[in-house]
Computed example of a mutant assay.
Amino acid sequence: MNYQVSSSQTNFQNAITPEELNQIIETIADGKYSWACVLILRFIGYNPLHYIPQRTYSRLMKENSQFETAKTPQKIPVNMPSSVNNTSRVASSQIFSTN
């Protein structure tokens, strides 16, 4: 079985800033593996709702909203589309707003 990765997907290591990487590592160290997956998807520009159920995402957001605001107050999710079948990518600037 052959699998080809497009060049846009192979350069994602440049998309995650050192601060974001540290936040992901801290989250993993705290044992919050599902939340770390959400953060990774967000930081590389994907909508987590395209990959996990909305109910799970809502629970994770509720559990980690205080944690996230304390760590990174500059990123707050705004109007995440809930359509799982929507294949169009939303730019990260449309997903997050700054305070």
Rank of each mutant, 00 (worst) to 15 (best):
S7L: 13
N14M: 09
T27Y: 02
N64D: 08
Q13L: 06
T56R: 12
P18H: 01
M61I: 09
I25H: 06
F96W: 10
T56N: 06
L41E: 11
P53D: 08
N79Q: 14
K62G: 14
F43I: 03
S7F: 07
N14K: 12
N2Q: 06
Y57E: 11
S82H: 03
S82I: 08
Y57H: 15
F96S: 00
S7H: 10
T98P: 00
L21V: 11
I52F: 14
N11A: 15
S93A: 05
N11E: 15
E19D: 10
R59C: 05
V90S: 15
I25F: 02
S93T: 12
F96T: 00
P48H: 08
P53K: 06
F12H: 01
F43A: 08
N99G: 00
N99R: 02
I95F: 10
H50I: 10
T56K: 13
S34Q: 01
Y3H: 09
V38M: 08
M1G: 13
I40T: 11
V90N: 15
E68K: 09
F12C: 08
P48T: 06
N47Q: 02
T98W: 11
I16C: 10
G45H: 09
Q74A: 13
Y51A: 13
R89D: 12
V38S: 04
M80N: 04
G45M: 07
Q13D: 07
Y57I: 04
Q54T: 09
P81M: 01
K62C: 11
S93C: 06
Y3C: 14
N85V: 07
Y51L: 13
A91I: 10
I52S: 09
N99E: 02
E63G: 01
W35G: 07
C37G: 11
E19R: 10
S8F: 03
T98M: 03
M1I: 04
I40H: 04
W35A: 09
R59Q: 12
L49T: 11
L49R: 14
V78F: 00
P48C: 07
